[in-house]
Structures are given as structure tokens and as C-alpha cells.
């Protein structure tokens, strides 16, 4: 990797200050992605500011819901009683991602900021607008089996790789960040990640010197009827072909509220708003689930090798909703 400066921040203000002074500096948390990217020469920061000593590692109940510290590890988060009881969807989604070893290191904040695993992005000999704007998109007419069917642009067809974020999108989480001015602000999860558009080099709407401090998940009534379904090439340690976070608030067989987000289909976790809208007030039946799934996937624009994701997406959404309705039990 390229030579870089390493500093360990003892307090938040210092960490933010260090980053704001150097536009080639990056925060270092779990390091499970950025270190890989540096070894591959994809990420080339000249300074890493280690924030692991900062105190944002708590998971706690708040008046509004549950707060996940940005530096809490994925493993700890998934297994925390508060999360397991109140947010089983999130717990399932985290455990569906990566491997045990990686989850032990990876932090919640880092999970949001991980980069795509598009193989063109990772290979510096290949064109990639995300890695090197202006070089073209290798995947667009290349091997794009793993790529986007929603929201892609001529510049980029990569997908966001996280499972955790798919659940967070469904649960309408808020991302709390501290800026260079010392003020904290809240970003709605739907506005956190972005579509590639003309600047695929940007994965999200964070400013360079923003530091994520916590992720807040508002109270909800989904704990009894939620399910995270991940379809992948092998049973563990594989990125989603399609994944679905489904959550239902059902009363007397009627759907009061529905949340559906898809992973592996877009540059950001894809909220199935059409399907959600359709389901609200309807009976919680398999026929309605299928109709909702069908409706949502109509807008999909597949590429040469990922046409299967359209049909798979329909089936996965319907299945995830059915599983959610069954309380996660296999039919």
C-alpha cells in the first residue's frame, strides 16, 4: 500500500479536525474494508485517523427508540438483547452478512460506508468510474450478474453490498453525524446513500469531515412480523443476489404498515415504496404479497447477465413477506 500517516484520535473534536484539514485523510474504524481497498490500491488515503478509542460504542434504549453506537461492532449489535428483542430484522440482516471474523471487527458506522464489491471497482487494471471518474464503467457491458437493476446510470451499475443497511432502510433509521463545526445533525436513512447519477464516486451524502456517531432506530411495531431473506450463491459469506428486509404491522389480518427494502439491486438499499403503499390497509395474504412484489419489480431495468434478478426479486419479496407473516418460521 501507499505510505500514509496514522494517528489515533483521543477525542471526537480532534478526529474531525484532523480529517477536515486533509482531504485525503479517512477515518479508520474496524478497517475491514478500507484496509483491503488500500492493499489493492483502490483507496489511496495519505492519512488514517483511528477513531476506535472514541466512545460511540454503546447500544441503548432512548426515548425515541434504540440507538446504536457507530463504533459498536456488528457482532455485538446483532447479539444485543435490545436488538434481538426489538429489532430482530436488523439482527438477522447483520448475521446474514460477511463472516463471523469480519463481523467481530466491523463497526456499525463502517458498515454504512463500505464500498461496492463490484469486481471492476476492485481491479485497478479495469475501467471504473467509481474508482477513477471518467474511465468508464467496466461492468455495464461486462460481467454484470451481481449488478443493479434499479437506479443505475450510464456511469455506474454497482450495488451497495451491505445487508445491515437494507434492514436499516426498512426500519427508517436516522444517521447522526458530527460535522467540522462541532454540531450534530441527523440524516434520514433514505437520504444517506445515493444513486450513482453522474458522480458514482460518491456513495453517500456525508461530507468529507462528517463523523457518524450513532444510528437511531425509531420505535416500531414490527418485531413480531419481520424477516430478512438473502438469496446468494452459497449459504454463507457471499454477497446478496437479491435480499429483502420485510416488516409488517398487522392487526386482525389487516396490514397497518409495511416496510420492504431490497439489497443487491441498486447503488443504495432500495425501498420498495410502491409495494408498501399497495399493501397498507390490505389483507395480509400471499396473493397481495405477490401483487405488491410484481408491482415493485415492474420498474426494474436489468442488464445482460442479471435479468434473473427481476423474477428472483418478485419471488423474494413475496417470500420474505410470507415469512414475516409467519413470524419467521419456515412454511
Amino acid at each position: 500500500m501507499r505510505p500514509f500517516k496514522y494517528t489515533r484520535a483521543a477525542e471526537t473534536a480532534k478526529a474531525v479536525e484532523a480529517i477536515s484539514k486533509n482531504k485525503n485523510a479517512r477515518f479508520l474504524a474496524g478497517g475491514t474494508n478500507i484496509i483491503d481497498l488500500m492493499k489493492e490500491d483502490v483507496a489511496r488515503p495519505d492519512e488514517l485517523v483511528d477513531i476506535n478509542r472514541l466512545s460511540f460504542d454503546q447500544i441503548k434504549a432512548t426515548s425515541g427508540g434504540i440507538s446504536l453506537g457507530a463504533l459498536a461492532k456488528n457482532t455485538e449489535t446483532a447479539n444485543h438483547p435490545l436488538v434481538r428483542q426489538n429489532l430482530p430484522l436488523l439482527s438477522q440482516a447483520i448475521l446474514a452478512g460477511a463472516s463471523g471474523q469480519i463481523r467481530n471487527m466491523a463497526t456499525n458506522g463502517g458498515n454504512l460506508n463500505q464500498r461496492t464489491r463490484c469486481t471492476y471497482f476492485y481491479d485497478t487494471a479495469m475501467p471504473c468510474n467509481k474508482r477513477e471518474p471518467g474511465t468508464g464503467c467496466g461492468a455495464m457491458e461486462g460481467i454484470n450478474r451481481m449488478h443493479a437493476v434499479f437506479g443505475w446510470s450510464e456511469k455506474c451499475v454497482a450495488v451497495h453490498p451491505s445487508d445491515m443497511c437494507v434492514a436499516l432502510a426498512a426500519l427508517d433509521a436516522n444517521v447522526k453525524v458530527q460535522g467540522a463545526d462541532g454540531k450534530t445533525r441527523s440524516i434520514a436513512f433514505a437520504d444517506y446513500h445515493r444513486l450513482p447519477g453522474d458522480s458514482p464516486e460518491l456513495d453517500n451524502n456525508l461530507k468529507h469531515d462528517d463523523l457518524i456517531t450513532e444510528i437511531e432506530i425509531p420505535k416500531n411495531n414490527f418485531a413480531a412480523n419481520s424477516y430478512y431473506l438473502k438469496v446468494r450463491d452459497r449459504a454463507s459469506y457471499a454477497f446478496a443476489l437479491v435480499s429483502v428486509a420485510a416488516a409488517l404491522d398487522v392487526s386482525g389480518g389487516k396490514i397497518k404498515d409495511a416496510r420492504i427494502a431490497l439489497g443487491g439491486v441498486a447503488h443504495k438499499p432500495w425501498r420498495a415504496l410502491e409495494a408498501e403503499k399497495f399493501l397498507k390497509g390490505k389483507d395480509a395474504t400471499e396473493a397481495n404479497f405477490k401483487a405488491a412484489a410484481e408491482m415493485e419489480m415492474k420498474a426494474a431495468k436489468p442488464l445482460e447477465h442479471n435479468k434473473f434478478k427481476v423474477e428472483l426479486g418478485k419471488r423474494a419479496v413475496a417470500r420474505a413477506l410470507t415469512m414475516a407473516m409467519n413470524g419467521g418460521k419456515t412454511a
Binding site: 464489491r117 471492476y120 479495469m126 460481467i143 454463507s236
Partner: peptide, 23 residues
């Protein structure tokens, strides 16, 4: 292999899938 470039693309253990324990 991306035949346009004559280059292998699944060149790590995340994208080349050997069976995992769960399989």
C-alpha cells in the same frame, strides 16, 4: 473472465465461491 479484456474477474475468495461450512 471478461473476454473484452481477457482478464479474470472473480479473483478473490469473496467472489470465487468455494463451499462454506454452511453449505
Amino acid at each position: 473472465i471478461d473476454h473484452r479484456y481477457g482478464r479474470m474477474t472473480t479473483t478473490d475468495l469473496a467472489s470465487y465461491h468455494v463451499p462454506s461450512h454452511a453449505d
